[in-house]
Design a protein around this nucleic acid. Structure first.
Lengths: 209, 209
DNA sequence: ACCGAACCGTACCGTACGGTACGCAAAAAT
DNA sequence: ATTTTTGCGTACCGTACGGTACGGTTCGGT
């Protein structure tokens, strides 16, 4: 009806406000994200907030969609690549995934979406799902498919293979961090975990030469 | 300091109230879980709630701890078992894990704990973690260790192996369901997924005969 | 110079919720 | 039979928050 869904480009001003709001969200959870607080932090009036985003839920949705639109495109791999290049690409993916997942913004956003999941059909979860995970998912799935056609991998179903890779990389880290446990692992721990996961993945799906 | 942690036994009445409250939580999220609503649904007075559980956070904690104390002990495996028995035990574990994770109660409880994770140190996440996951985790880890000493598995670190198994079983299903997506898979789908995960796990950690 | 749009700041309203107080009934204790 | 305890029901208080209204100000257009 109003504000076409594909027309989610905001004013610079509005984007700045959304960023400020995200900042508040990250360091205080949803409970700290009141309209008054946002207006104060962003230096705008509540009335403007309502004019721009409709209501509070609209504002939350705007925050999520904005961040979701920021997912890095991720350099496309060359059409031809060696087995080592494939492995390297997978390791980069794994490390990025772990880094993203354990980031403060990601955690805050996921907590927000999960909190809203029970109630009204604002569908924040769907947005996060589609714009976040699914996007890099498709990308990596394509990578796997390419590795498959080049004979390095042996997967009947790339989708399935990707799902496995995800599991091997993330394990139970995501939910544990969402629950508030375990502070950040060091960067080299991350990298090691990524390498390990990829090694196991190739052990499962690698075309045994 | 007060209410010894091991002394979480409540009156029958109080347990009934907690169950009613959990019911409300499952079908309405945290927002529906107001003290008034609980009192009404459980047929008790708000004053009693506050006398019994201190404040709202105490009540939430009581709900979580109560459910967490319900985790099934899970029949201990015999000291000696065949490789097939080990595999069967793992498959049972995997299926149970998937069932639990996708249950309405588990989802509601996890959402609640995640929602509280950002703010005050009620530590619901820690409770869920310790009483829920860690408990079955230790158990299954022990199972893996036994399989290791019997020569069926080849794991230097059972903890690590368990973590991998978890990842292979759960993949990204948990977070997706927490975000509100994808309704239940059928029981046979679950079972198939469990078998598949265990197959992959053994492929990784099985002592190649 | 004037006008209107955008917008800030503040004040305001209605409501919902956490927490408390009190009166009364039923049960338990003496 | 009397007293004490327990707890239900209801009413109440303070506060916090979502949402709205309004006066004043800046600023671009003409």
């Amino acid at each position: 009806m109003f504000t076409e869904p594909d027309q989610q480009d905001f004013t610079d001003r509005q984007r700045a406000v959304l960023d400020k709001a995200l900042e508040l969200l990250v360091e205080g959870g949803e409970k700290a994200l009141t309209t008054a607080a946002i207006a104060r932090a962003a230096g705008c009036s509540k009335e403007s907030l309502y004019k721009w985003f409709g209501d509070r839920d609209g504002l939350l949705a705007a925050i999520v969609t904005r961040q979701a639109s920021k997912v890095i495109p991720g350099a496309d791999q060359a059409a031809d690549m060696s087995e080592a290049e494939l492995r390297a690409a997978l390791e980069v993916f794994a490390k990025n995934l772990l880094e993203t997942i354990s980031g403060d913004v990601s955690l805050a956003l996921n907590r927000l979406a999960i909190g809203q999941a029970s109630k009204a059909e604002t569908g924040l979860g769907a947005v996060l799902e589609k714009s976040g995970r699914a996007r890099i998912g498709r990308q990596t799935t394509a990578l796997l498919e390419r590795g498959c056609t080049q004979g390095y991998l042996n997967c009947e179903d790339p989708q399935e293979a990707y799902s496995t890779l995800y599991g091997l990389v993330v394990r139970d880290q995501h939910i544990r961090m969402l629950l508030g446990a375990s502070k950040k692992a060091s960067v080299q721990d991350l990298e090691l975990a990524a390498k390990n996961a990829v090694k196991q993945f190739i052990q499962l799906y690698g075309a045994n030469k």
